[in-house]
């Protein structure tokens, strides 16, 4: 009776597929959680998981996130794929608000950009008088430099610093390498290739133990190196269907006493990583 048994196989296959699809679909049910697009640097410091857990405990709102570059995070908001963005590129954020993709902006905290590089420091970044001077020294020495080149907040800051040094990064030679990846990945690459790179100090401190060949070479708190993080709920008028109220609650919690004190108390390997400076119009 092999034709009948073949029919049985087909029925079993169909049942298996339907069950598998049902389980998958169940896991894909319209999410009840708030979805955030954020930058790799906030993930790579390890701040997000405990902070989001606290937020959920306080409000009952669950938050999940995708970690990408600032440019891509804002684009996810621009497409309406996420409810809220947490980024660090003030110029791009202003555009995001101006185009009505963002509802409002709360600044949350800042940390500092630092220049890290091979412990030998052949370019002499340690002796630099300013951040642009440090980059000029790297340029003069044609020391290998890893650029994230991912339109992230860090990348935008890096390009601004080259400009401040009177240099045009687009004309650089092969010593200037573009990783097109996140902060953590770029630090890993710099460590392997004995290269300089620009990092935020938060990610650096979080990753320092795994980067034996790199040293912290320039970490003065020049105002130009201030790395301001902000949260922007996506505008429900432009993108109907986003969880606007929950996003607002999240933005407000972050600048409120609970969020701010958590951020101020957050330490990685003994270092305080973010300075809370919560304020804003949300």
């Amino acid at each position: 009776m092999h034709f009948a048994s073949m029919r049985q196989y087909i029925v079993v296959l169909i049942i298996a597929a339907v069950v598998a699809l049902a389980v998958t679909a169940y896991l894909s049910l319209p999410r009840a959680y708030l979805l955030m697009a954020t930058t790799t640097s906030t993930r790579d410091t390890g701040l997000l998981p405990p902070m989001l857990r606290n937020f959920t405990l306080d409000t009952g709102i669950e938050v999940r996130y995708i970690a990408v570059g600032t440019g891509q995070a804002l684009d996810a908001g621009r497409r309406g794929d996420v409810d809220v963005v947490m980024v660090h590129a003030p110029a791009l954020e202003a555009e995001f608000i101006a185009s009505k993709d963002g509802l409002c902006r709360n600044q949350i905290m800042y940390n500092t950009f630092v220049i890290v590089g091979p412990a030998g420091d052949s370019a002499g970044v340690r002796n630099a008088t300013s951040a642009p001077d440090a980059l000029a020294r790297i340029y003069d020495n044609r020391s290998r430099f890893e650029s994230r080149a991912d339109n992230s907040g860090t990348n935008i800051k890096e390009l601004a610093l080259w400009s401040a040094a009177g240099l045009n990064a687009s004309s650089f030679g092969t010593w200037y390498e573009k990783t097109n990846q996140g902060m953590g990945a770029t630090l890993t690459i710099a460590n392997e290739r004995a290269a300089y790179t620009l990092s935020d100090d938060g990610t650096w401190f979080a990753r320092e133990p795994t980067l034996p060949y790199l040293g912290l070479l320039y970490n003065r708190t020049d105002s130009v190196l201030r790395n301001q993080y902000s949260v922007i709920p996506v505008n429900p008028a432009t993108h109907p269907g986003v969880f606007s109220e929950r996003a607002l609650a999240f933005a407000q919690w972050l600048v409120g006493p609970r969020g701010q004190s958590f951020i101020g108390a957050f330490k990685v390997h003994g270092h305080t990583i973010f300075t809370p400076d919560g304020t804003g119009d949300c």
């Binding site: 699809l21 998958t24 679909a25 896991l27 894909s28 319209p30 999410r31 979805l35 995708i66 497409r79 309406g80 794929d81 993108h239 269907g241």
Partner: peptide
């Protein structure tokens, strides 16, 4: 993607 033709199904970033 939300802005794409099947956006209303909200299947981006889901197992399905």
């Amino acid at each position: 993607s939300r802005a794409g033709p099947l956006g209303p199904l909200r299947l981006l970033y889901t197992p399905l």
